[in-house]
Simulated scan of single mutants.
Amino acid sequence: MATDLYTHPDYFNMDDLLSEEHKLVRETTRSWVKQNVSPIIEDYYERAAFPEHLVKQLGEIGAFGPYIPETYGGPGLDQISYGLIMQELERCDSGLRSTSSVQSSLVMYPIWKYGNEDQRQKYLPKLATGEFLGCFGLTEPDHGSNPGGMISNFKDMGDHYLLNGAKMWISNAPKADIAVVWAKNEEGRIHGLIVEKGMEGFSAPEMKGKHSLRASITGELIFDNVKVPKENLLPNKSGLGAPLGCLDSARFGIAWGALGSAMDCYDQALRYSKERTQFNVPIGAFQLTQKKLAEMITEITKAQLLTFRLGQLRNEGKATSAQISMAKRNNVEIALKIAREARQILGGMGITNEYSVMRHMANLESVVTYEGTHDIHLLITGMDVTGIPAFTREMPNK
């Protein structure tokens, strides 16, 4: 079993910008990952098994809803702390971070921001501890980048709502106790509903056959005349902006998390380049190897500065959706490139499970297209700088 030797790169002394609380949060998460996850993650990944026993442990270290106030069972930390936790989790595995960020940003966040006090008190403390696991239902079989086209719907039946439809590619779904589901009412307005496991007509079959995020469990959400109590409607925000606000929080976490993957790949490649010898010298002595490593650390440093500043803006309530999109897109892109370059430095060893590089690479192929595809995020930046949306085109008359 490989020992986790990870040391995080900090070329521009970013630690000087962190508070003592930030460092404590990061080290707590890192220590837990090294002790409890690194030794087992390759086995779970190869078996495509979900390490369900880690869920309550994630709650214990404050990885569920780190910014949720203590009143509702959360640690009450700031956005940079949230980012650092996501960075440390994804440094180990994207699926681990996905479990945490879905619970935090896509389940707890909407209940905290859009729910009423009864809903907050009922669900948030149990989600914070990991007693409950949650999922988020937005993407549909025919509506991914265009969530506003969803066909899932609910009708007012007097004393309850009747929910019908289906969601797809839903992290945590088969094991989730609750689902925050987005559907249209009879007027076509999008609302969030809390659907609980065991409600008649509600099922969440697992999706199998993934070559990526294999240690994360993914499923569908199927609603066949599900009776949802009226008190389960999130009352404080509706429209497409409601789920997109959740995605802003999740994408912020992904920006930090993907950077963690890049840092791990770089750390392994750097160490290997000093240990592996060819032609009687370490391969790190060769110019092309140094070029790869120099470019890796440059991109990591730029991404560190980007995410830290974005964290400051989130703390101040000033970060825009477009800024978050830029960070998510950039950091996933550089992480993928770094994973591929690290694989080359590692040579044949890079495709084995003795190193995490190939697993990171496969996982990042999901991260680059989920919660906003790479191209859609590019168009978000394009729209932001030009003021002209390029998302839709009218079909030509035939």
Score class of each variant (00 low, 15 high):
A255I: 01
A255Q: 01
G257V: 03
G260M: 03
S261R: 02
S261C: 15
A262L: 05
A262D: 03
M263C: 13
D264W: 05
D264K: 01
C265L: 06
C265P: 02
Y266K: 05
D267I: 03
D267K: 02
Q268V: 07
A269Q: 03
L270N: 06
L270D: 08
R271V: 01
Y272D: 01
S273Q: 06
E275G: 13
E275F: 04
R276D: 00
R276V: 12
T277D: 05
T277S: 15
Q278A: 13
F279G: 00
F279D: 10
F279Q: 11
F279L: 14
N280G: 00
V281S: 09
P282L: 10
I283D: 01
G284H: 05
G284R: 10
G284E: 12
Q287A: 09
L288C: 03
L288N: 12
T289F: 09
K292L: 13
L293G: 12
A294T: 12
E295P: 04
T298L: 14
I300E: 08
I300V: 11
T301D: 09
K302C: 09
A303I: 05
A303G: 12
A303P: 10
Q304W: 06
Q304K: 08
Q304C: 01
L305Q: 13
T307V: 14
T307Y: 05
R309S: 11
G311Y: 06
G311F: 10
Q312T: 09
N315T: 12
N315L: 09
E316S: 10
E316T: 07
E316Y: 08
E316W: 04
E316F: 08
G317K: 07
G317I: 07
A319V: 06
A319G: 02
A319K: 07
T320K: 14
T320A: 14
A322Y: 08
A322R: 00
Q323D: 05
I324W: 06
I324N: 04
I324D: 02
I324G: 00
S325I: 05
S325Y: 11
S325E: 10
M326F: 15
A327D: 05
K328G: 07
N330M: 08
N330E: 13
N331L: 06
V332H: 02
V332E: 03
E333W: 01
I334D: 06
A335Q: 00
L336M: 14
K337R: 13
A339E: 03
A339G: 00
R340Q: 09
E341K: 04
E341W: 10
R343I: 10
R343C: 07
Q344H: 09
Q344T: 14
I345K: 03
I345M: 02
I345W: 04
I345F: 11
I345A: 04
L346P: 14
L346M: 14
G347E: 00
G347R: 10
G347A: 14
G347F: 11
G347D: 12
G347V: 11
